[in-house]
């Protein structure tokens, strides 16, 4: 099943790359129409949505852990944070490159950019908290789950700042051809599937590692 998911993701991503950078390529900014910088949109938007989805997964499994106390849910939460951090890094890095090419600055403190940066820092804070908390594994998992639920408050802020607060960041994008729409839909689907595969792989690895550690202790 996972292998099938991997193959579908591979094909979708491969198709998205070729369509996005050939027939569906977006023209550069007026000052430099040949620049490929606007094509970063195909990676930036799916990464932002995936980093928010990972936060949603983290919220659900954290609530599940507090409710049931199953250690597996804590490991899935860790996997979601690691994958979310990866996508949040891609989101901020591609956003910075786009901003430099489009507006001439790497970063500027606007609501959208600040809330996205906070999202990245929250993921990092979760990992630091997890690795530095003393005490039993159950206590650490409980505190991290509570932190994850509180940290989720940033997600509506990111969405609200994107849609409703005036910013130099665009709220939406209009495609000029069907190829561009196709490339965007394919990259969106491929990135979501990639995030799901990453979480699955990482969670499986963490579960196997914890089983192995239990055996060593016994």
């Amino acid at each position: 099943m996972r292998r099938l998911l991997l193959v579908v993701t591979f094909l979708l991503m491969f198709g998205a790359i070729w369509i996005a950078l050939t027939v569906g390529a977006i023209k550069g900014p007026p000052a430099n129409p040949d620049s490929p910088v606007r094509n970063i949109f195909y990676a930036h938007v799916p990464s932002s949505i995936c980093s928010l989805i990972c936060f949603l997964v983290l919220l659900v499994v954290s609530i599940g852990y507090l409710y049931t106390g199953r250690p597996v849910l804590d490991l899935v939460a860790l996997a979601a944070v690691e994958v979310g951090l990866l996508f949040a890094t891609v989101l901020n890095a591609t956003g910075s490159i786009f901003s430099r090419g489009e507006w001439g600055v790497w970063w500027t403190p606007t609501p959208r950019l600040v809330t996205s940066a906070i999202l990245w820092f929250l993921y990092v804070a979760y990992l630091i908290l997890r690795s530095s908390l003393p005490g039993s594994a159950q206590r650490r998992a409980r505190i991290c789950a509570v932190f994850a639920i509180i940290a989720f408050l940033d997600v509506p802020l990111v969405i609200i700042s994107a849609r409703f607060i005036p910013d130099m960041h665009r709220a939406s994008f209009e495609f000029t051809s069907t190829w561009q729409t196709a490339a965007f839909v394919m990259s969106m689907m491929a990135t979501v599937l990639l995030a799901a595969t990453f979480i699955w792989l990482r969670a499986d690895l963490l579960i196997s590692e914890s089983k192995l550690q239990e055996e060593i202790v016994l």
Partner: peptide, 19 residues
């Protein structure tokens, strides 16, 4: 396009290996 495709191919092979 070619460089992104190659990068993606390497990532895919690594993921298969990890799986």
């Amino acid at each position: 396009c070619l460089s992104f495709s190659s990068l993606w191919l390497v990532t895919f092979i690594y993921m298969l290996f990890l799986d």
